[in-house]
Design a protein around this nucleic acid. Sequence first.
DNA 1: TGCTTATCGACAATGATTGTTGGTAGCTTC
DNA 2: GAAGCTACCAACAATCATTGTCGATAAGCA
Lengths: 138, 138
Amino acid sequence: MKTTEQLTDLFRERGLRVTLQRQMIFGLLQANDSHPTVESLYERAQAEMPTMSLKTVYQTVHDLEALGEVDVLDLGTGSLRVDPNVEDHHHHLVCSSCGRVRDLPVEFDGLRVPNRYRRDFTVDAVQVIFRGRCDDCA
Amino acid sequence: MKTTEQLTDLFRERGLRVTLQRQMIFGLLQANDSHPTVESLYERAQAEMPTMSLKTVYQTVHDLEALGEVDVLDLGTGSLRVDPNVEDHHHHLVCSSCGRVRDLPVEFDGLRVPNRYRRDFTVDAVQVIFRGRCDDCA
DNA sequence: TGCTTATCGACAATGATTGTTGGTAGCTTC
DNA sequence: GAAGCTACCAACAATCATTGTCGATAAGCA
């Protein structure tokens, strides 16, 4: 995703207002590869800004998603994960127990739907999820 | 998954009781490749057995899952999908709009997590989801 | 500086799934 | 075939993540 300054400009260009709350959320997501849940972003934000509301975090995350600055992933862990790395296409390794997520580079490119199975469908994305258990949970 | 008769035996072996409700659900899942939601199974069951409860469908589906007779999938469509095809490993093509699901054969076997990314993790499954739009939704 | 309106925070509502409970009915044993 | 044990049933309430509503506030523009 872009830097906080670039996001500020981008939001204003689109007629969106840049508030302290939003700037804090921008900051929490910068170079964050922990795939945080919305709830966990909220907790971290609230520690510094006690009036932050959960709704505001959801709202801002969805605004960022609409601008293509983050991916909001459902990895089957019960809640959505925010992934600010939209630059490098990658896959995910997920702990089935605690929900921890690790990014994986795409070393097996060319995953395609065989032609005869494409009928009636326009395919536009592949998501690969490896599931397992992290050492802390094993 | 096994036939209704085989499932009846299997349930009894495990000390589970086989009721009319469960047999009806077994029947609804036989050779069903539509990846139904629990809710849709419930609706179909209720049409023939008006007293069927949603809880019973959830319960039975989870019992079948525990016995390895169905997979319960979270494909990001908002509700769980029941997949009775546990025999042939396969992947899925999902319509982002209506949630329709099609099975895909595994033509790209050997998807592996590169060794250096496996540290601290024991990987035991891969899930590949192709996303797109079906013609009805396009 | 003042105005317009997007955003805020508080609260209630939704939808999918699970917990609880008294009564019922499968299965086993005799 | 009858009796008893207990898993299962259906109805209801509760939970969790997420979204809708709304009056008050403050961001950005003129």
